[in-house]
C-alpha cells in the first residue's frame, strides 16, 4: 500500500500529494505517469508524476478535483493509503540539448511540466516557461519553475497577474522575439490544440503530453487511443508524448467526453 506522507493545497481544487512509492520513485523519469485507484470499488485513473524524492522514496502528484475519482483522491489525508498505485507508465520524455525550448503549461498541466523543465535545463537547454491560468490564484509552481527556467512568463485570462491573455499569446511573443527550437506543451486538450496550431504556423517542432481516458494504463484496453498522423496510437504505451502537429486534437477532445453523461450522474449522486 502507498501511504500519503504530505499534502498541501495549491488552490481549493488543486492538491499536491506526496505518496510513498520507493520503487516508482527510483525508476521514474520525466514524462512518466502512474495509475491510481482509491477504494476497492474505485476507478483506475492516470496521473502524470510531478516530482519524486529518492531519499524519502516518494512521488508527488498534483491532482485537480474534476470527477468522482479525482475528488476521492483529493480527499485523502496524510497517513491515508492509496489503495492501488502502479507505475511508472508510458515512455519517458526524450531529453537532449535542443537549444531554446519553450514550455507551455496550463492548469494542473503545469505540474507534470516541472520534471521536464528540470531535465531540459540540466541537459543545457535555454528554457523559457509560459504558465497560464484563468486567474492569479490558479497560477501554481511558479517559484519552482523559475529555479529551472531562464525566463518565466505568466499569463492570466483576466490579467490579475503577469500578462493578460492566453498561453498562446505568451508563446507567440517568444517565437517572434527569438529562434525557438522546440515547444513542449501540457495542459487541457483545448489549450494544447491551440498551442499546436500556433507553433505549426511558425514551424516550431512541438511535443504535447496527452492525458486521456484509460482503464489499465498498460496497453491492454485501448480506451486511450488517438489518431496521430492518421494512425491509431495508444497514449499509455506509445505516449503520453506525441508530435503535437500530428495529433488529431478534435477527435481526442471528442473522446474525452465519452463518459460525460455518466460522470454527471455519478457526481450528482455522490
Amino acid at each position: 500500500m502507498s501511504k500519503i506522507v504530505d499534502k498541501s493545497y495549491f488552490s481549493p481544487n488543486v492538491v499536491r500529494l506526496e505518496i510513498e512509492a520507493p520503487l516508482i520513485a527510483k525508476s521514474r523519469r520525466a514524462g512518466h505517469f502512474v495509475i491510481v485507484k482509491v477504494g476497492e470499488k474505485g476507478e483506475r485513473i492516470p496521473l502524470t508524476i510531478a516530482d519524486s524524492n529518492l531519499e524519502k522514496g516518494t512521488i508527488t502528484l498534483v491532482v485537480q478535483k474534476m470527477g468522482v475519482s479525482s475528488t476521492k483522491l483529493c480527499s485523502l489525508n496524510i497517513g491515508d493509503e492509496v489503495t492501488d498505485l502502479v507505475g511508472p507508465l508510458g515512455k519517458a520524455t526524450h531529453i537532449e540539448n535542443f537549444g531554446t525550448v519553450v514550455c507551455a503549461g496550463g492548469g494542473v498541466g503545469v505540474a507534470p511540466l516541472l520534471p521536464i523543465i528540470t531535465a531540459l535545463k540540466k541537459a543545457g537547454n535555454r528554457v523559457i516557461t509560459v504558465l497560464a491560468a484563468r486567474t492569479k490564484e490558479l497560477v501554481i509552481l511558479e517559484e519552482q519553475m523559475r529555479a529551472f527556467s531562464d525566463e518565466v512568463i505568466v499569463m492570466t485570462d483576466d490579467g490579475s497577474y503577469g500578462r493578460q491573455g492566453l498561453v498562446t499569446t505568451g508563446v507567440e511573443s517568444v517565437i517572434n522575439r527569438e529562434k525557438v527550437d522546440l515547444c513542449v506543451t501540457i495542459g487541457p486538450a483545448v489549450m494544447m490544440k491551440f498551442v499546436s496550431q500556433l507553433t505549426k504556423k511558425y514551424e516550431v517542432p512541438t511535443v504535447a503530453s496527452l492525458n486521456t481516458i484509460m482503464v489499465d494504463g498498460t496497453g491492454m484496453c485501448g480506451a486511450c487511443r488517438i489518431s496521430v498522423g492518421g494512425q491509431t496510437k495508444f497514449v499509455c504505451v506509445d505516449g503520453p508524448e506525441f508530435d503535437a502537429h500530428q495529433v488529431d486534437f478534435d477527435e481526442m477532445i471528442m473522446r474525452l467526453g465519452a463518459y460525460r453523461d455518466e460522470e454527471q450522474v455519478a457526481k450528482e449522486q455522490k
Partner: peptide, 26 residues
C-alpha cells in the same frame, strides 16, 4: 497479449466503439 487489434476503418474512434479488452475489463 496486451494490445487489442483494431481494423483501422472509418469511424472506429467514435465514442461507443471499443475493444473487447476494454469492455470486458470494465
Amino acid at each position: 497479449a496486451g494490445l487489442p487489434n483494431f481494423m483501422n476503418i472509418k469511424g472506429e474512434n467514435l465514442i461507443g466503439v471499443m475493444s473487447s479488452n476494454e469492455y470486458l475489463t470494465r
